[in-house]
């Protein structure tokens, strides 16, 4: 099953991408996070959240959505 992964804020600069498609079986959100950090080591220092199908989810949840969004904290004001 293909995943559409979108990057928000600073994560677009770290990955060099606005979004991409991923194929593969990741199991949990935590495994998906680890996979993305292996692809883009710069992600490791950011405490980003992962949403699937517009709900922010915890690392122990199964990946069962098709739209994945990576959301970093913002500090600007």
């Amino acid at each position: 099953m293909g995943l559409r992964v979108r990057y928000f804020g600073q994560l677009q600069e770290i990955t060099g991408k606005k979004e991409e498609s991923l194929t593969g079986v990741f199991g949990t959100i935590g495994n998906l996070r680890a996979h993305l950090i292996r692809c883009y080591p710069g992600l490791e220092k950011i405490h980003f959240k992962i949403a699937q199908d517009n709900t922010i989810d915890i690392d122990s949840s199964e990946v069962n959505g098709t739209l994945i969004d990576l959301l970093p904290p913002f500090s600007g004001g």
Binding site: Q10, K45, I46, H47, K49, P73, F74, S75, G76, G77
Partner: peptide, 20 residues
């Protein structure tokens, strides 16, 4: 509940560092 712990200093830039 959204971001349990703050990022390390300097990990996330603010407006004065990056522009807006």
């Amino acid at each position: 509940c959204l971001f349990p712990s703050p990022p390390k200093m300097g990990a996330i830039p603010n407006c004065s560092e990056i522009g807006v």
